[in-house]
């Protein structure tokens, strides 16, 4: 079996992530003062068990990564630039959704994500994005009584609040 000095990326990343979360659970549980409420099993019991489990599985993964136990390919080729664009567009929503409203923010995400997927018809994408977000806004806010974020630019004009 082929064996190199390098750790396999897959097992190593997943193993470290699991170990990290496990450590966080352990430290946070350990630092929390014991609860005043009377209970046979306290709130720390289950987190402790899960933390121990994560520790074991994390180490096991690192060990498997060291042994190169699995023959299948490690990780496929990835277009990191496209991933970055889509992830950034989604992250911008966290900050823009409430100030700008559903329609504008949604259209931005739609257009940018379509671009990341290789579409070059930007104007058409903007128009389609506007259409999709407006329809969903009307259907969900008025038809189904949900509250999508209302911005002051578009939503008030097409559907003034009663």
């Amino acid at each position: 079996m082929y064996k190199s000095a390098r750790l396999r990326v897959g097992e190593t990343v997943v193993g470290l992530f699991t170990l990290g979360i496990g450590m966080f659970l352990a430290i946070d549980t350990w630092r929390t003062p014991p609860s005043a409420a009377v209970a046979v099993v306290g709130p720390g019991m289950f987190p402790t068990l899960i933390a121990i489990g994560m520790g074991i599985v994390g180490l096991q993964l690192l060990w498997e990564g060291y042994l190169h136990r699995f023959a299948e390919e490690d990780i496929p080729d990835l277009d990191w630039r496209a991933v970055g664009i889509v992830a950034a567009a989604l992250a911008s929503q966290i900050f823009l959704l409430e100030p700008l409203g559903w329609i504008i923010c949604g259209t931005v995400v739609f257009t940018v994500a379509a671009m990341a997927f290789g579409s070059r018809r930007h104007v058409l994408n903007v128009v389609f994005g506007l259409l999709l977000t407006s329809v969903t806004y009307l259907v969900f806010d008025y038809g189904l009584d949900l509250d999508l974020p209302t911005g002051s630019l578009i939503e008030d004009v097409i559907a003034p609040t009663e």
């Binding site: 739609f110 997927f117 579409s119 999508l148």
Partner: peptide, 19 residues
């Protein structure tokens, strides 16, 4: 078209989470 499909999925995902 795939760009519209997946951009649309992202929009509906956000909508589901927010509402």
């Amino acid at each position: 078209p795939r760009p519209w499909l997946f951009s649309g999925i992202l929009l509906f995902a956000t909508m589901g989470a927010y509402t």
